[in-house]
Write a protein that binds this DNA or RNA. Structure first.
Length: 457
RNA sequence: GUGGGUUUAGCUCAGUUGGUUAGAGCGCCGCUCUGUGGCAGCGGAGGCCGGGGGUUCAAGUCCCCUAAUCCACCCCA
């Protein structure tokens, strides 16, 4: 076995590769980003790109010192020398905020909508929909705290998912309140669960210290029983006045727009920087962890990074997870187009000339040529397998008359075309277009095939 | 970090209670095919049987270790 790619990474492959699935198909990634770009730019977001490695401090202060990401999932990269290493970014928001602060983007009209896309890195163990290098689409709005921005962000995220054709999605919406609210809630939870330590699962005993809110969505039956018996009140009950008003306003907008969501009073998010609005988008098809993406408000992040207080909100979608979800819904990409014309010389002496013709035709259409002389049968078979629309055969006879034998593969219609009109013919409508099939065409130059059609659907 | 499944040709897989030079289908390349394709027939290339160690006269097959992969826990996209 030759060398293999590192664990938890994937190659994005060309169409036709064996073992190809949507989430490893290069063109599918392209497609998702293109669709997203359309939606996001129509929403007013501008593209921003940041390095994939950053100072460790950015991630520690952004994502949170005690989060799983920082404590056990960071990739560190070193270069020759004494430097203490960089972090491969585990998510995009901290970097975008860092770039906003560092580059004075504050002077752009505010609030500023940005989007980015690219690889993220987390050194986790691998399972369905979870890779060590995965790809995210990010949308961030910096410089505004109006609830309308929250509602718009959610709506934009839903538009992206919709534009991809996904239908079976569930939006879970909640609010994690302001920091003071969360402190009060955590204190409440510690007090409640503290009285039932004996009945909690071992994992939840750990959660009790680190993040008691996690106990609420534990899968263990014993924990669920405790939660039920204690009739634990949800985070939403603990929202302060302002957070409460903000959340109510966000919901009013979404309700008015007909954006359907499931209220999740106990929604927990894993990154420390979230405030107030928080949401997750789920899909049944992606496996045990069904989140396609999530988002929320992060008004405290800029200050944590050492900048002036700057409100912000954003979301991220996992591209691989979107593709898995698309697979689960049976969505497929249309066939990738083959060359428009495949040229083949029938005689060794003509190979160079034919290649030159191909190079010239590329100003009009996708043109490929054979690298050696082929027999007509082989040339046609080759052209067909490559998915070409036309095959152009040039032998001594054609070369002598200054024409090419141009065959429309799916219809079998063939004509001799003069070199001077070839560009126009290839750039124009297909032979199969009735306007184009010459009614006076000589029978001797057309060879309709017994229709053994295939691919062309 | 933990648990279970898997690993033989480019792909999908056979391979008997351990027994000579490890097979098939598909794909790839070529020929049949002196200027008209997708079919068919024939031929060819392509395997440290994931890696390492052990048991044995003999290991793809049994044992141990290890890696990768898939799924799940944890956590997240």
């Amino acid at each position: 076995m030759a060398l293999q790619r590192p664990k938890g990474t994937s190659d994005h492959l060309p169409d036709g590769s064996p073992k190809l699935s949507l989430d490893t198909q290069a063109r599918a990634f392209q497609r998702v980003t293109d669709v997203a770009r359309g939606v996001l730019e129509r929403s007013g977001a501008q593209f921003i790109a940041t390095p994939i490695f950053e100072e460790p401090e950015l991630v520690r202060r952004g994502v949170g010192e005690t989060s799983d990401i920082v404590t056990k999932e960071m990739f560190t990269v070193y270069y020759f020398g004494e430097h203490g290493g960089f972090i491969l970014r585990p998510e995009g928001t901290a970097s975008v905020m860092r770039a906003y602060l560092q580059n004075g983007l504050k002077q752009l009209p505010s609030p500023l909508k940005l989007w980015t896309q690219g690889p993220m890195f987390r050194a986790e163990n691998v399972q369905k929909g979870r890779l060590r290098q995965f790809h995210q689409l990010d949308y961030e709005v910096i410089g505004g705290d109006d609830p309308l921005i929250d509602a718009e962000a959610v709506a934009v995220m839903m538009s992206v998912v919709e534009a991809l054709g996904l239908r079976q999605v569930t939006l879970k919406l909640g609010s994690v309140g302001d920091p003071a609210d969360r402190e009060r809630y955590n204190a409440y939870l510690r007090e409640q669960f503290g009285r039932r330590r004996a009945d909690l699962s071992p994992e939840s005993l750990l959660r009790l210290d680190r993040n008691p809110m996690r106990i609420l969505d534990s899968k263990s039956a014993e924990d669920q029983a405790v939660v039920r018996e204690l009739a634990v009140r949800p985070m939403l009950d603990f929202l302060g006045e302002q957070a409460q008003a903000h959340f109510a306003s966000v919901r009013r907008y979404l309700d008015a727009w007909g954006v359907s969501y499931q209220l999740d009073p106990g929604l927990v998010r894993g990154l420390d920087y979230y405030r107030r609005s928080a949401w997750e988008l789920h899909h049944a098809g992606v496996g045990a962890k069904s989140a396609l993406g999530g988002g929320g408000r992060y008004d405290g992040l800029a200050e944590q990074l050492g900048g002036p207080a700057t409100p912000g909100i954003g979301w991220a979608l996992g591209i691989e997870r979107l593709l898995i979800a698309m697979t689960a819904e049976g969505l497929e990409l249309p066939l990738s187009p083959g060359p428009h014309v495949y040229l083949a010389a029938l005689d060794g002496a003509l190979v160079g000339q034919v290649a030159e013709l191909g190079l010239q035709l590329r100003s009009v259409v996708r043109a490929e040529f054979a690298y050696r002389a082929l027999k007509p049968a082989v040339a046609l078979r080759d052209a067909g397998r490559r998915g070409a629309v036309y095959a152009a055969l040039i032998g001594p006879e054609e070369a002598g008359r200054g024409v090419v034998a141009l065959k429309h593969l799916s219809s079998g219609v063939q004509r001799n075309i003069g070199l001077d009109e070839l560009r126009d013919v290839l750039g124009g409508p297909d032979f199969v277009n009735p306007d184009f099939v010459n009614p006076d065409a000589d029978d001797r130059t057309t060879h309709p095939q017994p229709s053994t059609n295939q691919e062309q659907a």
